[in-house]
Amino acid sequence: MKNSILKFLLFKFSRPLILIVLIIVFTVFTDTFWAPDNWTNISNIILQQAPFSVLLATAMTMTIILNGFDLSIGASVAFISCVCGYILRATGNPVYAIIAGVGLGAVVGTMNGILVTKAKIPSFVSTYAMKWVLNGFALVLLGGKQIYNFGPKFRPLFISNKFTFFYIMVAVLVIVSLIMKYTVFGRQVYATGNNPEAARISGIKTDLVTLKIYLMGGMIVGLVAVMYIANLGTAEPNIGTDFPINAIAAALIGGTAIGGGSGSVGKAIFGAMIILTLQNGMVQIGVPSVWQQVIVGLVILLSIFMERGLNKLAVRYEE
């Protein structure tokens, strides 16, 4: 009995545990990852990298709850950041850029949503095709060049205070998790993800729910694109190729199950932090950066193994 309670706790808190173990391992084996008098690396992860990874993982998690994927997020970031770069160069007004970024994200998200709901194309095929189209548009806009010089107002708005990205992330996460947990819409999303047919029969407009989720995801991605060029200072059409796979790996290792109906903002946060810690720690230990893509692929495989293993454990516990 005691053994099974331990197993249950392990099951429930496995992700935080993985994160803690990773942090301890990297702290012990390297000098640069974390030390009481060396916070640069950790603050770099939390303030510079986490806002992007966590927000993208959240957008991905929302589509996975509905048993879909969004492979266009990388290309969306590339395309939207190029358009925003253009707008900033022409007007220099950050407000236009932010509105255009989030608005374009909403448009791309809606198009993905329409392809998934109305045309009923499997989401990984439609968003993958969308990725090529958006990448193409970004390349047509900039022709393989970079764009910079965004005017005097835009970048200081984001980087004058180093906590700005973090605050934006927290605000978005709070809004999304409130919507998912405490609104009728949020309940409808989980119902639709769990069993679309049953949800439809009980009166939920599943197509509309799906469309709204892709719309929300698109808006988050648009926001990330604006933050991205603010952070980098340049916009180029070739960024973001590894965003989708990192986001999927983050969502899945965070404990969001494929097949729909499960997943939350909290899981996305832990997943993204696990991936970030792993990638950062590997670099600190001295693994060449070319290995990163292999590691992310292995993490996805590992997480689907883990999901099945934990499910079996849960079934045994319930018995």
């Binding site: 994927f69 990984f124 097949g259 893509q293 292999v294 692929g297 292995l298 996805i300």
Partner: peptide, 16 residues
């Protein structure tokens, strides 16, 4: 396992 996820991750592993 889900065919899409498995081949997606083996794609990433092979490119890597």
């Amino acid at each position: 396992y889900n065919y899409w996820l498995v081949t997606f991750s083996t794609m990433s592993i092979s490119y890597g």
